[in-house]
Nucleic acid binder design. Structure first.
Length: 565
RNA sequence: CGGGGCGUGGCUCAGUCCGGCUAGAGCGCGUGGUUUGGGACCAUGAGAUCGGAGGUUCGAAUCCUCUCGCCCCGACCA
């Protein structure tokens, strides 16, 4: 491909609305253009990369035995009503009506669609296992699109759904995907960190997220420094430290006018935040519940939701807080509350002589001791782990890292097959419900993550398997005869089956080199004065500083060597 | 949704506070010429309803009101 006939609108300056590396470089290298917030066009070279990623995903999915399908983007509301998600999905689902008033959703995910498909085509255990996937556009009305292509309203996703007769089968399907994912990301040139993740309220037993470590990541990971424990903060457990015991003080009421927050309390009582029984009222599935955690800790709503087995969980409004505690916000506590379900974090038991709200405006209790002053009826790990916490596996220290989630696999269970009434007959002729797994990869986001991870201050450095072209041929010619000689090399490369981008523009060499660095094709061949004088071309790897002088006859072999290594 | 910021040739920005003449610069683009191994140079040229609507004024990119779009932070831990 000749640059003069291609479309690579590179930008010398950073676009003003691109703030992260991948977004900036993808814009500047002429791969994408923004159409609107959270919506991007892919230009020819950007599309080429996207397709390479897609092909890797396809090859590995196929190798793992999954079958590609293509589902409609427009999904009938009835399907969503059947699973209940029409009502629980909320505003992130784009909903539309046709001219007759029939309701549809622009698919944000396709569990229902695939479950429905399977139910119409599968009837015997002999038809299973089945793992169906597609690579298709998803629509989500994101609360806030950001970071270019990393969080957008419209994106391409590979989503796969496995159906097995039993849990053992699901284990196999799941493990096959876990393996395929590792191969996919490795081939994409990405270093991913597989972490344990929360599988939501699907009743799923296993879930793994594939994260790319990055400062701009929107997920927080906890990694152990001495073993292989790594988990999403939504899921991460930690070993709580038992507080030192001290002689029990007596319970006393303290006047705390307008002292509501933990910070206020720390100042007022002049002690550590962990001396406070932070008491928070939530509403789960319409019912109020109080959770009690150490003052310095945050409630992990995912853990709490899982513990409660709740479909919905939200902080209680002030109204409800007043109703169940008798006091305005800021003065709730477990002491003396009889009719409210109270869940204590596992670390509460060992806190002594603490402080908590007195359920009375402007009053707190001090000298509070669990067991004596309030009963611990329910105990669970419901707080967010953080840097410095002890690893639940080995007692090592954990540290935090931010990551971009590029893939997620998890055991779904029976949620959809049950809700949508999918059955097959087993060997005995009895109806059984298949069990599902679900496996996603964000394609655009994977591309952004690659750029995020594989770039320097000059531009992108594409990994071998996803580079838009194999070689960037830079010609520096002073006359027609020299152009002819460069084109000889260009033709030779094409004839050897090498995908070459030939910069034939009439611009200065520096301009071409700068563009080549920006675009990031891993190999660059420069044909200029050394070739016309000595028959030598320059071969340079984008990732290295020094170049190699080689003869024309060795070019093809060198390129093939690079790509087969 | 709450807070903050920004909309001026294709791109990056100045001008706006304190209203005043044909709205500027750099980059990019067209033409002619000189250049050619790390974003060349000279000459010349095209290109802007100053996001949109309404208002104030003799006069609005600039002031006021409304509106649209975009970016960033946050989104309830008492």
């Amino acid at each position: 491909m000749k640059v003069s006939r291609y479309l690579i609108p590179t930008l010398k300056e950073n676009p003003s609305d691109a703030v992260v590396t991948s977004h900036r470089l993808m814009m500047r290298a002429g791969l994408i253009r923004k159409e609107s917030a959270g919506m991007y066009s892919y230009l020819p070279m950007g599309l080429k990369v996207l397709r390479k990623i897609i092909n890797i995903v396809k090859e590995e999915m196929d190798r793992a035995g999954a079958l590609e399908c293509l589902m409609p983007e427009l999904t009938n509301a009835d399907l969503w009503k059947e699973s209940g998600r029409w009502y629980t999905m909320g505003p992130e689902m784009f909903r539309i009506e046709d001219r007759n008033g029939l309701e549809y959703a622009l698919g944000p995910t396709h569990e229902e669609a695939f479950t429905h498909l399977v139910r119409t085509v599968v009837s015997s255990y002999r038809d299973l296992p089945l793992n169906l996937y597609q690579i298709n556009t998803k629509f989500r009305d994101e609360i806030r699109p950001r970071f270019g292509v990393i969080r957008s309203k419209e994106f391409i996703m590979k989503d796969a759904y496995s159906f097995d007769v039993d849990e053992k089968g699901l284990d196999e399907s799941y493990n096959a995907m876990a393996k395929a994912y590792r191969r996919i990301f490795e081939r994409c040139g990405l270093e991913t960190i597989p972490v344990q993740a929360d599988s939501g309220n699907m009743g799923g037993s296993a879930s793994e997220e594939f994260m790319v470590a990055s400062e701009i990541g929107e997920e927080v990971l906890l990694l152990c420094d001495s073993c292989d424990y790594r988990a999403n903060s939504e899921k991460a457990e930690y070993r709580s430290i038992t507080a030192e015991s001290e002689p029990q003080e007596s319970l006393r009421e303290v006047h705390t006018p307008d002292i509501k927050t933990i910070d206020d309390l720390v100042n007022f009582f002049n002690c550590q935040p962990d001396k406070f029984f932070k008491s928070i009222i939530y509403v789960y599935d319409g019912k109020p519940v109080m959770v009690v955690v150490p003052g310095s800790r945050d409630v992990n709503e995912h853990k709490l939701k899982n513990y409660l087995g709740a479909l919905e969980l939200e902080l209680a409004s002030e109204e409800i807080v007043i109703k169940v505690t008798g006091a305005p916000l800021g003065f709730a506590g477990p002491v003396g509350l009889k009719d409210l379900r109270i869940i204590c974090d596992v670390s509460i038991r060992s806190l002594c002589n603490g402080v908590t709200g007195a359920n009375k405006k402007d009053y707190h209790f001090a000298g509070v001791n669990p067991g004596r002053d309030f009963e611990i009826k329910e105990e669970a790990d419901i707080t967010i782990a953080r840097s410095g916490d002890l690893c639940p596996k080995c007692n090592g220290k954990m540290y935090e890292k931010k990551g971009i989630e590029v893939g997620h696999i998890f055991k779904l269970g029976y949620k959809y097959t049950k809700a949508m009434n999918v059955t097959v007959l087993d060997e005995k002729g009895e109806a059984i419900t298949p069990i599902m797994g679900c496996y996603g990869i964000g394609i655009n986001r994977t591309m952004a993550a690659i750029v995020e991870q594989c770039s320097d201050d000059k531009g992108i450095i594409w990994p071998k398997e996803v580079t838009p072209f194999h070689v960037h041929l830079v010609g520096i010619a002073k006359n027609d005869e020299e152009i002819r000689q460069i084109e000889e090399i260009y033709d030779m490369l094409i004839d050897s089956g090498i995908d070459v981008l030939y910069d034939d523009r009439k611009v200065s060499p520096g301009f071409k080199f700068a563009d080549a660095d920006l675009i990031g094709i891993p190999l660059r061949i420069t044909v200029g004065k050394n070739y016309f004088a000595k028959g030598e071309v320059e071969l340079k790897e984008r990732s290295k500083a020094e170049a190699l002088s080689i003869a024309k006859n060795n070019i093809v072999a060198e390129i093939k060597k690079y790509y087969s290594a």
